[in-house]
Each structure stands twice: as C-alpha cells, then as structure tokens.
Design a protein around this nucleic acid. Structure first.
Lengths: 186, 186
DNA sequence: ACCGTTAAAGCAAAGATATTGCATTAAGAC
DNA sequence: GTCTTAATGCAATATCTTTGCTTTAACGGT
C-alpha cells in the first residue's frame, strides 16, 4: 500500500460525530462566545490536540459544524404549484436564516479560512433545493425558471440584508422579491 | 460630572491610530492567518492588554480595521449619465470585493460578534455612494432609481457569489445584473 | 482469523496567548 | 493649576495552542 489514504470508518467517524455533537450541545448551553476547544474536547471525550489536528482551530470547527447544521433535513414542501413551492421555500429560508441561530451559523460558515469551503457546501444545499423545485415544476408541466436568477433575485438579497444591514427580511419584503422574480422570469 | 464619558482626543486617538496602522502593516507583511494580538501590540508600541481591553479580541479588531479600510477614499466617478455612473461604480465594486484583499476584508467585517456592527458601517458606505449617484442623476434631470432595489439587484448578488459560491463575478455577469436592473427600475 | 503497516488519537511538556488586579499616566472640567 | 477618572502600562496568573513521542486501531494482505 503505497499511497496515503484517508480512513473513514470506525473510530475516526465516531470521534468526528462526538466532537460535532459536543459542539452543538455547547452552542446551545453556553453560547458561542464562551466556547473553547478544550471545552468541546472534554465533552466529546477526546483530547484537545485531536481537535486541533483535525480541524485546525475553533473557527474552522465551528464552520464545519455550522455547515452540517445548515444541511436541510428533508425536501422542500410540495404545495402543488411552482409559485407556491417557491414562496414557501424562500419564506422559510428567510425566516431560518434571520433567526439568531441562523445568523450565527451563517457567520460561522463564512469565517472559514481554510480550503474546505463550508460556505460552498451551504450554497450547494440551496441550489439543490431549487433544483428540486424546478424538477417538480417540469414534472407538472409548468414553465421552468433559472436557478441562477433565483439565487440572484431571491436568495442573495435575503442574505445580504441579514449579514450586512442586520435587519430581518420581513415576509412582506420577501413577498416583494418573489413578485420581482415572477415579473422577470416567469 | 456624574456621567461616564468617552475620551476622544489625544492619547486615546493616537493609540487607536497606531494599532490600526500596525494591523494594516502586518496584514500586508505576514498575512492574516499569522497575525496575533501581541504582534500588533508590539508594532504599535502598546501592551497587549490595551488591545484586549479596547477591542476585546483579534476578530473584533480585524473587523474594525477592515471596516475602516472599506471606507471609500472619494466620490464615485462621474461619467455624465446615471447608467454610466452605475455601471462604473458596480463594476469597480465587484472587482474590489472579489479581489483577495476584498474577500478578506469582507470576511473580517462579517466575523464581528460584538455590537459595534462593522458590517452595518460598510453597508452604509455603499448606500452613501448610491445616494450620491442618485443625487447627481436628479441634478441632471434624469429619472431616479430605488436604492433598495439597487442593493437587492446589483450589490447583493455580487456579495453572495463572492462569499458563498467563491467565484468571481465576471464583468459580463455584472453587466447582466445591470441590464436586469435597467429593465426593472428605469 | 491473524499479522503488518500506518493514519489517527492520546499524553504531556513547552510555548504562546488571554485575563486581571494594581499602579501610573494624562484628558477633560472647573 | 488642580482634581477627577478614563485609559494605559505592568506583571503575575490562567488558559489555550503547539509539538514530539507513544499508543491505539483501521485497513490490506496472507
């Protein structure tokens, strides 16, 4: 066996799981600002050096965990029409991202400095969801839409407002985005 | 004198200046990943505890410095027409933000955890610039535009792509955004 | 099922960073 | 000028991070 290889099963996976769980628990219990690597390591039952070697530092670990938590649990709701699906999905997206937890996850994901690119993972989740909606619409015989345009017109403004201007995107505001998207693309 | 008051002149300002300068120098010299508070303190000629007390921690200091650096140096170029002004401004904005330095500054600004809200400052700079363009357009007798819409349609997608999908917004892509904005708002 | 190889984890010491109480300095008000 | 006190300096302490070495346990081959 000449090449390096990455072990995946067994202990390695158990430890990753334990560290992720410990991090999430602590995020709830003590709050993000107070968390430290030794804390997480202790609760996960590993030594700090293991965490440092696998994740590098706290921000990278938080980014990894946050990206995981932003992974959607299931498919977006099926409301029977593309307009309904999009509205439901985008409103829920806005609500989740604007919540304190959502904001925190977003910031953690973006703080990533390494090359793992937690942010890209999150972006992919969103694209996947939109693709699901598009597939459904086509199956129903409805007209499609451009996923790129949906990200530009619907998703990006929501994220920008949450991240930069620190306000909540109100349901009305999101409704306005949806109206604009409909006007442009459908 | 009963109330607390914040000192602004003299030594306090000198130290803030020195720390900011030291941070920027080090960002250029050794790179963001290697910077530490003691390093900055030494180069600024202050003790680390001063930095910790004033800024809290490294991320907050970096956010403060980054927000400062994102402050525009002057007014946006005047090309003689609103379409030209907007095009020039947005293209330049995209280019600056997509550069390695721009990305880094953006991330630092967003990492802010405290209540100073460096991100909001940056957002305000952008709004100010757009307001300048709007004022000029009106002075010329041109039709105006909605600043909110400009942020949603032009600025937000650029930021989203830089932050999340890690690609450069190409000039063509930005041109597309501008075309969409024109179609919608003008 | 056992053995050899080696990636990954544990351990512990050394190094670096962060925090804090107390002394000192210098802005601002009078 | 003098008083008050916010802000800094200093230094000891606590905490976190890094690193060399040892030990454990996946994985492949037999």
């Amino acid at each position: 066996m000449a090449r390096e290889m990455i072990r995946q099963g067994g202990r390695s996976a158990r430890i990753q799981e334990a560290v992720h769980r410990a991090t999430q628990t602590l995020l709830n219990d003590v709050g993000r600002a107070e968390i430290t690597v030794p804390m997480i390591a202790e609760r996960a039952g590993v030594t700090p050096s293991t965490v440092y070697r696998r994740w590098g530092d706290l921000p990278q670990l938080l980014a990894d965990v946050a990206a995981d938590r932003l992974r959607p649990v299931g498919e977006p709701d099926d409301t029977g029409s593309l307009a309904g699906d999009l509205g439901a999905f985008v409103q829920q997206y806005a609500e989740e991202m604007a919540s304190p937890v959502g904001r925190s996850l977003m910031r953690d994901v973006l703080a990533e400095t390494g090359s793992d690119l937690a942010a890209a993972r999150c972006c992919a989740y969103t694209t996947d969801h939109l693709q699901t909606l598009l597939r459904r619409a086509r199956a129903r015989g409805e007209a499609g839409f451009s996923i790129e345009a949906a990200i530009d017109i619907l998703i990006a403004p929501i994220c920008y407002r949450i991240l930069f201007s620190n306000g909540d995107p109100s349901p009305d505001y999101v409704q306005g985005l949806l109206a604009r998207f409909t006007r442009l693309e459908m």
